[in-house]
Design a protein around this nucleic acid. Structure first.
Lengths: 212, 212
DNA sequence: AATTGTGAATTGATTCACAGCT
DNA sequence: AGCTGTGAATCAATTCACAATT
């Protein structure tokens, strides 16, 4: 079935995450002039097992040709449709300290369909590196989010105020947070929080390399 | 060495990850003067279910007192021992662009037991914000890692060269990589790679918030 | 001959339910 | 009475194995 009317079935988060990886691999293959690719080859590029790739895709329909493989362009298109990353999503950044300012300057987001439309900070004038978007005072945050219907924020404020700032965001109708503050954010049911904790990532690494 | 004879049982990565979270919560509780805490309360702080917390801890032994809860200081100590984060781990940063430079400046690592001892870049002299550690040319990377027995690297180079740089690191004996390059790094068996892909995190968020 | 798509089997993680301490 | 520790049950994700298709 072509997945037209489908009430989107609940897709495991890990699958969605891997979809993003497949997408990037496919784009690379496409740039290299590849027309078709087998689950074997694509899986190797993505660092997963071929069956996992096939199971992941099975959530959305049938896209391959038996005996042949997948059409690179077509599969790439379908993933892009599923992820909805053809529409540019506006994002606000909250907390323009070291890390926050760097993330705005970092080209990685814009290149992939996200635009950081504004930054907010308790002290917009404190000295910092060149910041390519306007930095507003925190007082403007709630209205900005509401008026522009911003749905996602990157949160880079200190741990001590993170929950409070997050609450303001939720109250203003925002539903997705990429949280860099090293603290667990408690959020309403309908809000998604993805955490990126750099210290924990290192700590984790450090634990596992001790095994050898 | 610590950890006596017990061949360390294989602990699920997710458990280790949560241990890091519990640790931070415990420290906060300790600062607030708490002596003991129940699995119920600590779990709430950490955003997990009480049984999960207890199961996680069960991997390492018994630490609680029935009817009472856990001794905050003691539990914190045991987690710190398990994670091995009482010893300062030297880390190198490779790729001092926007993101790389920011990560060095970001206080978050030092505060948690990791010291970025040096940075490396193809062009150490290109203009960038103030960087608190010396930036060496790439040519010095392999020798530095070998000579100082550095075990972990933060990789912030462009995708196109990430695999190649990683190979140099592996050849020099490094066994842990925190990879920010938006590409899958293929590594030898005994090496651990943890990926942080900021664009994918946003993409993932954006997928799930569309559901409401 | 090659390769997908998928039920069945397996492995792993989470949660339940309650016995056992303090 | 309160709360931990854990075997059993459940739920979820991965992998196997092979029938189906080009």
């Amino acid at each position: 079935m072509k997945r037209t009317t489908r009430t989107r079935a609940r897709i495991p988060r890990k699958t969605v995450y891997r979809l993003s990886i497949y997408f990037r691999c496919l784009n690379r293959l496409q740039n290299n002039g590849l027309q078709t690719v087998s689950s074997e080859a694509l899986a190797r590029a993505a660092g997963v097992k071929p069956t996992q790739l096939r199971k992941d895709l099975a959530h959305f329909g049938q896209f391959g040709t038996r005996g042949l493989g997948y059409d690179v362009a077509q599969l790439s298109k379908m993933i892009s449709d599923v992820l909805g990353n053809q529409t540019l999503q506006p994002v606000v950044l909250v907390g323009a300290g070291n890390l926050g300012t760097a993330l705005v300057s970092y080209g990685g987001f814009a290149r992939e369909g996200f635009e950081i439309v504004a930054a907010f900070d308790v002290d917009p004038t404190r000295p910092r590196g060149r910041c390519p978007v306007p930095i507003h005072p925190m007082e403007r945050l709630a209205d900005f989010v509401r008026d522009r219907s911003v749905k996602m924020a990157i949160l880079c404020v200190p741990a001590a105020v993170a929950q409070e700032v997050a609450n303001q965001l939720f109250a203003a109708g925002l539903t997705g947070v990429l949280n860099f503050a090293p603290i667990v954010i408690h959020a309403p049911e309908d809000v998604i929080v993805n955490n990126v904790n750099l210290a924990i990532e290192l700590e984790n690494l450090s634990y596992f390399i001790q095994d050898e």
